[in-house]
Design a protein around this nucleic acid. Sequence first.
DNA 1: TGCCCGATTAACT
DNA 2: GTTAATCGGGCAA
Length: 187
Amino acid sequence: MPRRIGRSFFRRSVHEVAPDLIGATLLVAGVGGRIVEVEAYHHTDPAAHSFRGRTARNAVMFGPPGYAYVYRSYGIHWCVNFVCEPKGSAAAVLIRALEPLAGLGAMRRRRGTDEARLLCAGPGRVCEALGITAAHNGMALDKPPFEIFARTEAREVVAGPRIGITKAIDKPWRYGLKGSRFLSKPF
DNA sequence: TGCCCGATTAACT
DNA sequence: GTTAATCGGGCAA
């Protein structure tokens, strides 16, 4: 049986947690799959929402690790992060893509497509497929509806520049499962 | 208050 | 390759 990830998993550097999440399994109310792509953000990082200090939107990032930070992107999509590091670092890992494994029917219905590769390839798509909305902002990651299981097999992680940002674009803080066909973009 | 831009996506040409 | 959809944050005035 896979090991359930607890809150202490997230109380480390965001750059340790991020690659460690590659290959882990994320479920929301039983729907989800293997995490194949994430990005790391930190309050010292100009590209991070927490860079300019705490606001109503990013307040969860400034709280304790092991909680979900969900925000509205471009006024349309939802994106989910896992808050990391001791409280105050305002660091988080953005979940960018999954390999769909559980609840495929629900994902297809929510996403309006049958193509497995397009169900969870991108942060907005992950949230739509898993039914994540503002209602999940601030929820604990070790309690329902969230379930996260540690990876059980060795896997090769690749790193590269983050996507969709204009600041700190040189930082190689995007991590992915090497060779996965479920990435939002190849590395 | 008003204006611009963004950790995006899908539907265009 | 380009663009619309749509809204909160940041900054200028």
